[in-house]
Simulated scan of single mutants.
Amino acid sequence: MYRKSIAGLVLLLIFSLPVVVHAAQKGSGNVDADIQGPNLASVNAAVALAGSNDLVFGKNADRSVPIASITKVMTALVVLESLAPLDEWLVFQKRHTPAAANAYSRIRIGSQMRRADVLRIALMSSENFAAYTLARSHPGGFDAFIEAMNAKAKSLGMTGTRFVDPTGLSAENLSTAGDLVRLVNAASKHPEIREYSTTGYFIGQFRKPGYSLSFGNTNALVHRESWGVGLSKTGYLSEAGRCLVMVSNMNGRQVVTVLLDSLGTRSPMGDAGRIKRWLDSGAKGQVAEAARQYAQQKNAAYNSVAHSTRAALD
């Protein structure tokens, strides 16, 4: 009976008063997760009802941090809003600038693929050469594509966000968990992004020369019907940790989950499960000691950088 009463209270607060919960967190930079919500391995996080930018839970949700391949959600949004034809064949050209990190790809330089499929493998399989090619093939060119990414972020009110490349290989691509809720909600309006990002498996067809490659989704949760994943993107860089943004079914509601900077490969998925259980029952859950220590170290590093920045400005 006590468990059910707690669950009812949590759902009342979350589904009826999201603005109030968010207002208590906005601008704080740090939210006490032990009091406000579930225990998470992710250093930065945000949770909102799909379609709303008001957070029902946040953890360091206004801290700008590297976001790795979560970047590709904005890349997809810019591609679709450019209205470039999705059936156009794009050429995978050799990079005109060096990649900021390892950019190995199985795709052959000079081969071609339709823009729709290039976008699909960039989202579902986080194919970096695909994301680069989408930007390189932008009607206004590569630099104009980056400008469009930042202009779109500004128009969405993503004040803690900036982009310098379309793949997420650069640690200079920064955003906040709260900003990424805005991005996910905007991206969710496009059926192509919802479909492509949640494709489980895909065999890509190339021409000149003709060959095929198999691709798998980087988020294991898209294969589980109980999650009802409607949009998904994972990311990883050493500077960004493990990241995940997702729209999924949690207790009969479509929920946006943003998880940034986790230690382990499966930690974001574990956090998603903890959030789902918290929404259902109020249970805060537990995270491994290694994850807690990692979060303490990263928080200390973030705070040190912030302190140094403030000191330099004073």
Score class of each variant (00 low, 15 high):
186 A>D: 06
125 S>Q: 00
216 G>L: 06
18 P>H: 08
80 L>F: 05
37 G>F: 09
102 N>D: 15
303 N>V: 13
202 F>N: 14
308 S>A: 10
164 V>E: 09
247 V>I: 09
217 N>F: 05
273 G>D: 11
115 R>P: 02
77 L>S: 13
236 Y>E: 05
196 Y>R: 10
87 D>G: 08
225 E>L: 11
50 A>C: 11
85 P>Y: 09
73 V>S: 14
196 Y>D: 09
201 Y>D: 10
120 R>T: 04
240 A>L: 01
142 F>D: 04
229 V>P: 15
181 V>I: 08
215 F>A: 09
42 S>C: 03
67 I>A: 07
280 D>H: 00
17 L>Q: 10
99 A>E: 13
128 N>R: 03
269 M>K: 00
84 A>W: 07
62 D>Q: 15
215 F>Q: 10
281 S>N: 08
18 P>A: 15
123 L>F: 14
181 V>E: 13
209 P>T: 05
117 D>W: 00
257 T>V: 02
210 G>L: 02
104 Y>W: 14
128 N>H: 06
250 M>A: 06
273 G>P: 00
41 A>V: 03
124 M>I: 00
3 R>F: 07
91 V>G: 09
250 M>G: 08
188 S>D: 07
229 V>R: 10
192 E>C: 04
134 L>S: 02
99 A>T: 02
21 V>I: 11
89 W>L: 13
258 V>K: 08
265 T>E: 15
18 P>I: 15
229 V>M: 11
66 P>Q: 00
223 H>C: 07
84 A>P: 10
126 S>P: 04
301 A>G: 02
94 K>W: 08
214 S>H: 08
151 A>G: 03
240 A>W: 00
